[in-house]
């Protein structure tokens, strides 16, 4: 369950940010999760609550913003919305699309007090 260590890294990033921006508490975290990324939303929500407990992020809501996966065909150069890494190009049927969106996990923004 690598979401646990990713949640720990998130906490570290937020603590660092609290020193730079001077806030004391986080009430909400918006997390962009690419649908082709390595993060499972439910597992992340579970780990988030466990990791943030006892920190400045305790009790904060985690809102997951799913990002659609998009692949670019290396054959016909058109893009296709995909759900899996093995989905073919919807235009010409070619496999091995280059992922152009949906494989990242970013903290988008924070609501802070």
């Amino acid at each position: 369950m690598h979401e646990l260590s990713l949640a720990e890294d998130m906490l570290e990033m937020i603590v660092q940010r609290s020193q730079d921006d001077g806030f004391e508490r986080v009430t909400k975290v918006w997390l962009e999760v690419g649908m082709l990324s390595h993060v499972e939303a439910d597992a992340m929500i579970f780990c988030f609550d466990a990791v943030m407990s006892g920190t400045l992020v305790e009790g904060a809501t985690l809102e997951i913003l799913p990002t659609q996966g998009i692949g670019e065909c290396q054959q016909c150069q058109q893009t296709t919305q995909i759900e899996h890494l093995y989905d073919p190009c919807e235009h010409c049927g070619e496999f091995g699309l280059k992922i152009v969106q949906g494989d990242h996990v970013n903290i988008k923004s924070l609501a802070v007090v």
Binding site: L6, M13, R17, T27, V105, K108, A111, V112
Partner: peptide
Amino acid sequence: NPEHARMIEVEQNILGKN
């Protein structure tokens, strides 16, 4: 309303540290 939150844009990859 001092309890009201303000927004901070972060836009950071959570794999950034690794």
